[in-house]
Amino acid sequence: MGSVSIVGAGPGDPELITVKGQRLLAEADVIIYAGSLVPKALLDYAREDCEIYNSASMSLPEVLETIEKSVQNNKKVVRLHTGDPSIYGAIQEQMDALTEKGIEYDVVPGVSSFLATAAALKQEYTLPGVTQTVIITRNEGRTPVPDRESLRSLAAHKSTMCIFLSISMLSEVVEELIAGGYEPDTPIAIVQRASWPEQRIFRGTLSTICKEIEGKGVDRTTMIVVSHVLGSDYELSRLYAPEFSHGFRKASI
């Protein structure tokens, strides 16, 4: 029997795939990749004789059929997902179906786009005295969101919020965040295609950001970050303070 690996491709930069993920791509007999999101440059790691399928034009039954036939033919299969497959990756239904068919698989994590966004912004999401919480969420669209997880409800925490899959509804996002408790002058950053060569960054406040990106073609593959950490004063971490002792260092003061 062959093998199946569900691999996180990372946010876009081909070098941000994990070492293990790159190795599995190089060893694969079959690669099924999310062509609408995964950069084709990642396929350069594949062998010339590798069978490559773009899942953007495939249904779930077709993906599963391709995997099943490949495994039966003793082939190594990589199912390549964008970012980290555990976040909005739609992999649970695939994993459950593989389990039902008796096909074993491994999952290899990847660098999520919300982390690549922090790198692009050169920003730490968890600053002492500002916030120690990061909320990963999305606005309701074709996929429903439970009422208790609405942007309006989550905004009450006023922590760092990374909002996926919502740029087309930015005005609604802003309205919900302000209604939920964020002040209109709360900083916001929008990063399109974080880590890609065409990466773009826009900054503003909840009250200005819609006008800031108007007419600039900001659409898919975009992360919205709302947080007081963006340009905020903060307390220094105690971890490196001279008077702070821990298991690896004694206080020097």
Rank of each mutant, 00 (worst) to 15 (best):
I6N: 10
G8P: 09
A9N: 06
G10W: 04
D13P: 04
T18G: 14
L25A: 04
E27H: 07
A28Y: 05
D29K: 02
S36C: 00
S36N: 09
L37G: 00
V38I: 06
P39G: 02
P39L: 04
A46D: 01
C50R: 00
Y53F: 14
Y53W: 11
N54A: 00
N54T: 01
S55K: 07
L60V: 15
E62G: 09
T66D: 04
I67Y: 06
E68V: 05
S70T: 01
K75F: 07
K76V: 03
V77K: 03
L80W: 06
H81L: 08
T82L: 08
P85A: 12
I87P: 10
I91F: 08
Q94A: 07
D96P: 08
A97Q: 11
I103Y: 10
E104F: 08
E104R: 12
V107I: 15
V108W: 09
S112H: 02
A119K: 05
A119M: 07
L121I: 08
K122I: 06
Q123E: 14
T126A: 13
P128F: 09
V134H: 08
I136D: 05
T137G: 02
T137A: 03
R138M: 02
N139R: 07
R142V: 04
P146W: 02
D147V: 11
E149Y: 14
E149T: 03
R152Y: 11
S153N: 15
L154S: 06
H157Y: 14
T160N: 11
I163L: 06
L165F: 11
L165Y: 04
I167E: 00
M169Q: 15
L170S: 08
E172R: 13
E176V: 04
A189H: 00
V191S: 05
R193H: 09
A194M: 01
R200D: 07
R203Y: 06
L206W: 00
I209K: 02
I209S: 04
I209Y: 03
I213P: 01
G217R: 07
G217A: 08
G217T: 06
D219T: 10
D219L: 05
R220M: 14
V225A: 09
V226A: 07
S227M: 13
S232F: 03
D233W: 07
D233R: 10
E235M: 12
L236F: 11
S245I: 05
F248N: 12
